[in-house]
Design a binder for these strands. Structure first.
Lengths: 211, 211
DNA sequence: GTTGAAATTAGTACGAA
DNA sequence: TTCGTACTAATTTCAAC
């Protein structure tokens, strides 16, 4: 089988994309739904589950890869059994104009599973998995605190992961209700006061710069 | 190929596990490292990359599955190309003693990619992917606000995902420095004041209940 | 834990609808 | 585009070392 595709996806890896990409139809989504749960089944079995011919499955499968919709195949592990049973979220306040260094430092931290730049009170959220809580403490105080770009951190622990889907698809979106149609008239129901709160970006965040 | 393993992992799916699980050695970790990047390669090629015989690779591969360390094979998609370019985090305050309903409701929301119970100011964090910001708004006001267990929400948007590893492994952990050895003497360096802040659980969280 | 050979399955190429 | 089939190549399984 080799690697299933020797050719590198044309636009993969680049952030700015040139082509518009292929339009996903229901069959494409079905393929992604099946592969989400069974990323290692053969294309023949994939075709059977989706209800298309094998040749068609090969064509679409390769198209999804070539177009970059499918980035890579991977797997899910049981973190506890893998020896890293403690998960923590670290919210980071980044010193402005040091974003580049912040990103560079993070790239060298293999213990970080996820990092995203966010709006709101903090600037970034980091998710780490550790063997014990002491390791989290060490991570925050020794590793993160030594990064000049890090101004402050706030750590919370994850007590339980209720659900964790590899990804969601447009087909997972609930049908827009009558009360919330598409982006046309900009008027919606009055929101129960004090129940919801959107948090905008902190000042000076417009200076967000890549690399 | 079929599904690579017809036998169901013994302890998979159950939360409380009976067996202790197998002890992962360096070879196991290497296997997981390779599969993390190339979840679809053949076991033959896996053996070659890890540097072991094929039969050995089959044995260990199956052991990792049977023991539940490997939960399932999946893939990564480009969310933008898949049509869901907006990612948001919704921090939820849950009405105490309604955790069970909260979990039940979430299970019926396929648009939620991730949900974890956390310590700190809020009770849970939800990650969603949507086609546009209006959809996030609709999600929060129509879907979440209708859940009685949800007392309040706070939404932040993800501006950029700096890095996203499928999972981290013990072999990804940086070597414990001399300043931070293993959990023995409980004394560490003084932490730069005001730089770090751990946030404990809100009051009444001890009532956390499953299902 | 390793190697080698048989049996099965996967991937490719092609013409037809 | 999609389907069906035949051909080729690779993978898994099983046996012996």
């Amino acid at each position: 089988m080799g690697e299933m595709s020797r050719t590198d996806p044309p636009g993969a890896g680049r952030s700015g994309r040139i082509g518009i990409g292929l339009q996903l139809d229901a069959t494409h989504l079905k393929i992604l739904e099946v592969l989400r749960e069974h990323g290692r089944i053969s294309v023949a079995e994939l075709a059977e589950r989706v209800g298309i011919s094998r040749a068609n499955a090969y064509t679409r499968f390769e198209a999804l890869r070539a177009d970059g919709v499918i980035k890579r195949f991977t797997l899910e592990v049981d973190h506890v059994r893998a020896g890293l049973g403690i998960t923590a979220l670290i919210f980071v306040t980044v010193r402005q104009q040091m974003w580049k260094q912040f990103r560079a430092q993070l790239a060298q931290m293999p213990e970080v599973e996820y990092c995203a730049i966010t709006t709101g009170q903090h600037d970034a959220m980091i998710q780490v998995r550790m063997s014990d809580v002491a390791a989290v403490h060490a991570m925050v105080t020794d590793r993160l605190a030594n990064i000049p770009a890090v101004k402050a951190t706030e750590t919370v622990f994850i007590l339980d992961e209720v659900l964790h889907r590899p990804y969601v698809l447009p087909s997972d979106q609930p049908a827009r209700t009558a009360t919330t149609p598409r982006p046309e008239p900009r008027r919606r129901e009055p929101v129960p006061l004090g129940k919801m709160r959107f948090v905008g970006a902190a000042e000076g965040r417009a200076t967000l710069q890549r690399d």
